[in-house]
Amino acid sequence: MLATAGAPAAQQAPVATDPLFVAPADSLNPEQVRSLQQRLADWPQLDRYRADNAALPPPAKGERRVVFYGDSITDGWGRVQGTTFFPGKPYVNRGISGQTTAQMLLRFRKDVIALKPAAVVILAGTNDIAGNTGVATQAMIEDNLQSMAELARAHGIRVVLASVLPVSDYPWRPGLQPADKVRRLNAWIRDYARRSGATYLDYWSALANAQGGIDAKLAADGVHPTPAGYAVMAPLAQKAIDRALAK
């Protein structure tokens, strides 16, 4: 779930593989090495939205800003051709392709708290399961999600915790059989949302097929939503935001 290195935010789209994890080191070309060096120099990618955040004015009086926070599934929303991102709504996209919950936790203050939203929609965890930044147990994912939620609440930000989207295989890490891991993580997210007073946003039930994956019409590569997939997700997200803001 990675963005094309160096592309402007509006043009970024997920790609299927990460040479850092799937290719021998001696097979990387100079451009790939340069890209990976840049990523490692700014591991949480704090620089990705630095200029956008500086240019974003504070919420207007009465405006209830919402930050969508996640990985490539969020990053591509409104940026992938054929998709729109809640036109007319004061919603801000702060997804970064390829990120795990550990990276997201490190940039949470810059890309969420500093923007002074009324609510944050957190969608994360699938890249942890895929091992994008190394082995991550479910307990590690839970800790990171819980820390983000606690930081938000400490700053008066309503929390919407989204289920991880269904997936039966990762194109860039084939053979992991992640469907059951996704189910178990989602069960924890749902329970934690109930216990903590967060709002649970259930994408999984609306998108999953019988195998615990997602059909090609909704995600052509089995991971990243198509415009049809985002069309299913949008009203679910809006309903969850409305519930969160009404609390």
Rank of each mutant, 00 (worst) to 15 (best):
G175N: 12
Q146E: 13
I141H: 04
Q146H: 12
R173V: 10
A136D: 10
P166N: 01
T137R: 06
P171G: 09
D169Y: 07
S168Q: 03
I157G: 13
V160K: 10
E142M: 13
L165R: 02
I157E: 14
G175C: 07
G134D: 07
Q146G: 07
K181H: 03
Q138F: 02
I157V: 15
V159Y: 11
A136V: 03
R158N: 14
D169W: 06
D143P: 00
A179Q: 12
G156R: 15
T137G: 07
L145F: 05
D143N: 11
L161D: 12
I157L: 13
I157M: 13
D169C: 05
P166E: 03
H155A: 11
V159N: 08
L145I: 15
L151A: 11
G175A: 06
R183F: 00
A152P: 13
E150S: 15
Q146C: 11
S147T: 14
D169A: 08
Q138R: 12
N144F: 02
G134A: 06
L176D: 10
Y170L: 11
W172S: 13
S163Q: 06
R184G: 01
A139T: 06
K181T: 04
L165A: 02
W172P: 04
V182A: 02
V160G: 09
P171Y: 09
D169S: 12
R173Q: 15
P174F: 09
A179I: 00
L165G: 00
A154W: 02
M148C: 08
Q138W: 00
H155T: 12
V182E: 05
L161I: 14
G156W: 13
V135D: 11
V159P: 09
V167E: 07
R158E: 14
S163K: 04
A139F: 01
W172Y: 14
S163H: 03
L151D: 05
V167L: 04
H155V: 08
W172L: 09
M140C: 01
V159S: 09
Y170E: 08
V167D: 07
V164G: 01
I157P: 13
L176N: 06
L176Q: 15
E142C: 09
R184I: 03
A162T: 09
Q177N: 14
N144E: 04
L176E: 10
E142T: 11
A154M: 07
R158I: 10
R183H: 00
N144L: 04
Q138C: 01
V159L: 12
G134Y: 04
A149L: 12
A139I: 01
V159C: 11
A136R: 12
A154Q: 14
P171M: 09
V164D: 02
L176I: 10
L185R: 03
S168V: 02
V182F: 00
A136G: 01
I141E: 04
L151E: 05
E150R: 15
R153K: 15
N144D: 11
S168W: 00
G134H: 05
S163I: 03
R158H: 15
A179F: 00
W172E: 05
L185E: 05
R153A: 15
R184L: 05
